[in-house]
Simulated scan of single mutants.
Amino acid sequence: MDFFDWYWILVVFLFGACWGSFLNVCIYRIPAELSVVKPRSRCPKCMTDLAWKDNIPILGWIFLRGKCRYCKAPVSARYPSIELLTALLFTAVWLVYPYQLIVLPYGLLIFGLIFGSMVDYDEMWIPDRVTIGGEIIGPILSFLIPAMHGVDSHMSGLIQSLIGLAVGFGSLYSVSIIGKLILKKDAMGFGDVKLMGCIGAFLGWESVIFIVFISSLLGTIIGVTFIAIGKKELQSKIPFGPYISLAAMIWMLGGWKLWALYLEWMSGTAY
């Protein structure tokens, strides 16, 4: 890679870190029904407004050694972790799809998936602005950027998005209905169903099969591990949104290649 390539990698990383900082605001304020614009960022303990240098993504927390400048109360490491995670994921998408317009909708989807996952982890629900919002924006972006679905025609992009939305929503909705009939209780939150519809709208119907399988596998492994070490009980509710989101990110960052290899192996055409 030349200097120009490294320049854009740095730009994308910093851009992602800034959006990660805004993500922290959204994760904290939106579930509490607070404005994400006003007031400005402040210490949750002493309520003192933070200086601009304290809000520098990642570095601000490091320079302050994880403590508020004013009251010295500890600041959770989750804040710089989310900023770093967002920056790394934005950069990874750029490296997989360099100089392609597809990085814009994928970056937006990553932002929504992290936001929805963290709220689901904290509150056990996924905001409609992520799920329903994604189901609305996904088809619009697919029409404008048909490359999201590997096609050239704007109308084909829209059709593929709508098919993905229907398959994504319908697949988990069917699972929730069947699970409720068998278990006599809700087997899956409706937020997960809507989230899968959102992801299908962005990534297409083929991604749905991969994501449902991988998220179920991850959820089972991690859930059983938590039960085994005593962190969870057998009847404990476990948020499924983060596993769906993680599987979707795997698909965006090359999981579709694994899926293609799997299909070749199943069809007997792999060498």
Rank of each mutant, 00 (worst) to 15 (best):
W94L: 05
P31L: 02
I250V: 13
T86C: 12
K194M: 03
G150S: 06
G191D: 03
Y7M: 14
C26I: 03
F143W: 14
K180E: 15
V37M: 09
L263Q: 15
I132V: 15
K257G: 00
I62A: 09
I82Q: 06
I211C: 09
M148Q: 11
V224F: 11
Q235A: 14
C71I: 06
G223N: 00
L95W: 03
P44L: 05
C46W: 06
A247I: 11
L104P: 00
V208Y: 02
E264V: 01
I27E: 06
L101P: 06
I211N: 11
D122N: 11
M1A: 10
C71T: 08
W125K: 07
Y243I: 11
S142C: 06
S153Y: 05
S176A: 15
L165Y: 12
F3M: 13
L88R: 04
I126V: 15
H149Y: 06
M196K: 05
L261I: 11
S216P: 05
V12D: 05
K38V: 10
S156Q: 14
L144Q: 01
A17C: 05
Y262K: 05
I199V: 13
L183C: 09
G20V: 08
K53I: 13
R29G: 03
I30S: 01
L50C: 06
Y28L: 11
D5H: 12
G20F: 10
F13M: 13
L95Y: 08
I102N: 03
G150Q: 09
E83Y: 10
L113W: 00
D2M: 02
I82P: 07
D128T: 04
I62E: 11
G223E: 11
S35N: 04
L183R: 13
